[in-house]
């Protein structure tokens, strides 16, 4: 799976499930958690989503604001394990 595909999937998930505003123009490097767009607890959903969609387990302690604040960071994290 290439990066663009991963990013599209994650973007759709974030907009539909976390932000719940599919029309929101989310930037690739827009801080979502520190920017207050989603709360850090939404990361649990993200963790399960990644498990089920990409079969990658991100440990709870890695579900942090520092690691997963932007779309690009989320994609990086997935790509890191996918490779």
């Amino acid at each position: 799976m290439d990066r663009t595909e991963v990013k599209d999937k994650i973007r759709t998930f974030v907009l539909n499930e976390l932000i719940r505003n599919p029309g929101y123009g989310l930037g690739d490097d827009e801080p979502m958690i520190t920017g207050g767009l989603i709360d850090s607890f939404s990361l649990a959903y993200f963790g399960v989503y990644v498990e089920e969609t990409f079969d990658i387990y991100i440990p709870d302690t890695d579900l942090t604001v520092a690691n997963l604040d932007t779309l690009n960071q989320m994609v990086d994290r997935v790509m890191q394990d996918a490779s």
């Binding site: 850090s40 607890f41 649990a44 963790g47 399960v48 709870d60 302690t61 579900l63």
Partner: peptide, 11 residues
């Protein structure tokens, strides 16, 4: 609490 209780139960 988030990392060792909330996330594991949520997931």
């Amino acid at each position: 609490l988030r990392d060792y209780i909330y996330f594991p139960t949520s997931r």
